[in-house]
Amino acid sequence: MKSKNETCDQKLKSDVKKEIKILIFGLIGALIMAVNIKSFVHAGGLYPGGFNGVTLLLQSIFENFFGITLPFTPISLILNAVPVAVSFLAIGKRFTVNTTVIIVATSIFTDIVPAIPITHDILLISIFGGIVNGIAVSLCLIGGTSTGGTDFIAVFFMEKKNTDVFNYILLGNAIVLIIAGILFGWDKALYSIIFQFTSTQMIHLLYQTHNKVTLFVVTDHPERVYEIIREVTHHSATELTATGMYSQQERGIIYSIVSRTEAKVVIRQVLESDPHAFVNVVKTDMFTGRFYMDDIH
């Protein structure tokens, strides 16, 4: 039997590991995004989605029409101020603070990373720049944070409403592209659509949290299984009591809905903890009710 101090120590170590993971994934994603902006986006004169695209558009407007060169960081931080405040109230304090760190890091990296164009072929820039951007965003989301701006909206709907809205955000970015097209030419705006579409598809490929499955775990150690599910997914579970018809022995059934990627980790750890457990995974297309993550608050 573990003492209360041992349990607290384990929880503290788990929280520290989680925060380190968030920071590492987020900073790598921020650096990749900054390099992408300086190497691909600037070279092609493109306008990526979200507030980064708005920031770049404002930089172009001030530089071309007023002869003023604005740094990336202050514009990005001002634009993200409102979403950060809303996220703090609607999504969670921990998630918002971590995302704010990534927003600041991305802005600073973008200002200090040297511009090294890899290619000047605008079609290649649109495709591969979009792929790299999707990888950067996905790294942040997988780590447990985001790149800010419209990602706050995406995370809110995924975690609170279990709805994937990345394609709707892509449509919302059309406003920025229309302005860019009117001011700087429609070719750049149309190539930016390719960039954003490629980025969105890359996020769908790498980030699978919105794809849910239902786990039914028949076990003699339901508490142990629940702790694994809680540790891996930060979601709760429901315990049912059942009787094995062949053995006539009473067993527990743990029922929980998790993401497809989380399910693989949970199943592996459950079978390591209880080799005699029986696990059934069912594809889940729709569900309603309270389904919030406890680690983003």
Rank of each mutant, 00 (worst) to 15 (best):
G50A: 12
V84G: 00
F40E: 01
F88Y: 14
V82Q: 04
S87V: 10
V86F: 15
V82Y: 09
P83H: 06
P48V: 13
P74M: 01
S76R: 04
G45L: 13
T96W: 08
V86Q: 03
S60H: 13
V84D: 04
F88I: 04
A81R: 08
T96Q: 00
V86L: 15
G50D: 12
N52Q: 14
I78E: 06
S87Q: 07
T96N: 03
F51H: 12
A43P: 13
S87I: 10
I75D: 05
L46V: 07
P48E: 00
G92V: 06
V41E: 09
S39W: 15
A85D: 04
P83L: 06
V54A: 15
G92K: 06
S39Q: 05
G45Y: 07
G45T: 05
A90E: 12
H42Y: 12
L79N: 03
F66S: 06
I75W: 00
P48Y: 03
F66A: 10
G53V: 11
V84N: 01
N52K: 09
V54T: 14
N64D: 15
I68P: 00
G49T: 08
G45V: 08
L70G: 00
P71T: 01
F72C: 04
H42V: 12
E63L: 15
T96E: 05
G45E: 10
L89T: 10
I68W: 01
F62Q: 07
P83R: 05
G50Q: 09
S87E: 10
F66R: 03
P83T: 02
F95T: 06
V54M: 14
N80R: 06
G53P: 04
F62M: 15
P83E: 11
F72I: 13
L89R: 12
Y47G: 13
F62C: 14
F66C: 11
G53Y: 05
T55S: 02
F66W: 12
F65W: 14
I91Q: 04
S60M: 14
I91A: 03
L46D: 05
I91L: 09
V41M: 11
P48I: 10
F95R: 03
F65Q: 14
G67Y: 01
G49R: 05
V84W: 06
F65E: 12
L56D: 02
L77G: 02
Q59L: 00
G49N: 11
F95I: 03
T96A: 10
V82P: 04
A81C: 14
G49A: 06
S87Y: 04
N64M: 02
S39M: 08
V84H: 01
G49V: 12
F62V: 13
G50F: 04
V86E: 03
L56G: 08
V82H: 02
I75V: 02
F51E: 11
L58E: 07
G49L: 09
L70N: 00
F66V: 00
H42L: 09
L77T: 04
L77I: 14
R94M: 06
